[in-house]
Design a protein around this nucleic acid. Structure first.
Lengths: 244, 244
DNA sequence: CCTTTCTGTTGACATTTATCAATTAGTTTT
DNA sequence: AAAACTAATTGATAAATGTCAACAGAAAGG
């Protein structure tokens, strides 16, 4: 560690390099990177930069070469599949301490998704060639990355399968429950997302999303205003989600 | 190798055990399992059984515990996501020499998909606890499995994204092109699948699929009868797929 | 060879969802 | 505070897709 540096100010990884990565406010996921030896971690984090993004900014762009993967230190980001004619699908919201690879890690080295900041966000970029090198050295680490990768893919697959199988009310219910239980974990919650983004999470137009939301409100299942939702009857929402 | 055994008859893995797995007609994928040492391969294949399935039979069932993964020696299988009310989605057709894990490998040890035989098929089942053990020993092997797993997931994600983004004609075009270029690799091809299954690949009802197919025929893009399709104007089909 | 059964096909119709246009409400700028 | 923008909402309508019912044709079994 740099001489005499105050650990509590250890926010900027470009200054304190790998040492900071064991601190409690580090930008990396301890489940995965904690498996590396200090030397290995050094290799990976040596030239890492911490970068700040403002809401809406693109962190990684679909169809560009995958040279780095991104670790989210704090804040929320959305994983988007950009379709033709602005038809976007939001597949996942990722939170602090997540890693995201953009899809094609070790497969074709292209990013299959766009990641964009939802809130203010700090992330670090990690060089994939250094990562690949470590994968060959440390099998526990590569198993953990396999696990993480599978988990993330399965979550996106589940989302998409629900979008394909269900009618609008079921999809809106899924989105509302996902935001409450997975993303924000409080009940009246501020969805920091626009109605367009909520619609993109639900695979429909914003007009349709708004209409569905209104019906839920009229039936007393939820209460909402411009930027927050309260789920009043979760069980009934779950039922709607089930029925598709 | 067992003494003096004729390698050309080496079809049944329960007899010749791991030795057969390097032969040309083995049931495993050489890209992945070729990375194992003979000893490691022995560990994995020691108690492996080769099992025959008839068309339509379920090879692994969604929501059951994932104790084994399956290797397909020859024949075709379909990967199905079973939804409520018989709303099934076929996410992928898998061919000879493929491995399929059922989705949850190393994540939650449950199968997230059903795999069923399309043709007569021979497969081997490999114990996952033995696999996990090898993953910790051989990092080249685990990287290759990570790659395979990512590739398979990406392929299914792409399928689902297309189903969500496109209208029926685009989805039918995708299915027809997928069968020609990826699965059968010939031009007039026998789709061994029922119209219901083709519809399940395209995320629609069989009636809608048939209507779409008929329109393509009327426009001269394809020719088809009860059990085969010939693609006449591939470029126009690609165009339809692009336009969604 | 006839019956039965399953798959494929067609048509009429209902439902779901998108599109477009108009309006309102909020936010930012000046 | 007014103007100018952006996001949210509403309504009318059209397009896409599913549902249901009827029927045809092939395959399977007696």
């Amino acid at each position: 560690m740099s001489e005499g540096q105050d650990p509590s100010r250890c926010g900027n990884c470009t200054e304190c390099k790998h040492d900071c990565c064991f601190k409690s406010d580090h930008c990396i996921n301890p489940h995965i990177f904690g498996l590396l030896s200090p030397d290995e971690l050094h290799t990976l984090m040596d030239n890492k930069r911490q970068i700040h993004f403002r809401p809406g900014e693109t962190i990684m762009k679909q169809n560009t070469p995958l040279t780095h993967l991104v670790c989210i230190k704090n804040g929320l980001a959305k994983v988007v599949s950009e379709g033709p004619k602005g038809k976007n699908l939001i597949l996942q919201i990722i939170k602090s301490n997540s890693i995201f690879t953009g899809g094609g890690t070790i497969v074709d080295d292209f990013r299959h998704f766009t990641v964009a900041a939802v809130t203010d966000i700090d992330c670090c970029f990690i060089d994939t060639t250094r990562l690949y090198q470590l994968l060959t050295q440390n099998s526990t680490f590569s198993i953990e990355l396999l696990k993480h990768s599978n988990k993330q893919h399965l979550s996106m697959l589940t989302t998409l399968i629900n979008l394909t199988n269900k009618y609008m009310p079921g999809r809106v219910a899924d989105t509302l429950l996902y935001l409450k239980n997975v993303v924000f974990e409080t009940n009246p919650y501020n969805f920091l997302l626009s109605k367009q983004e909520l619609a993109d999470m639900s695979g429909m137009t914003k007009e349709s999303f708004i209409r569905s939301l209104k019906e839920f409100e009229d039936s007393g299942l939820i209460r909402h205003n411009r930027n927050s939702v309260e789920i009043l009857k979760e069980n009934e929402l779950i039922e709607i989600s089930r029925n598709g």
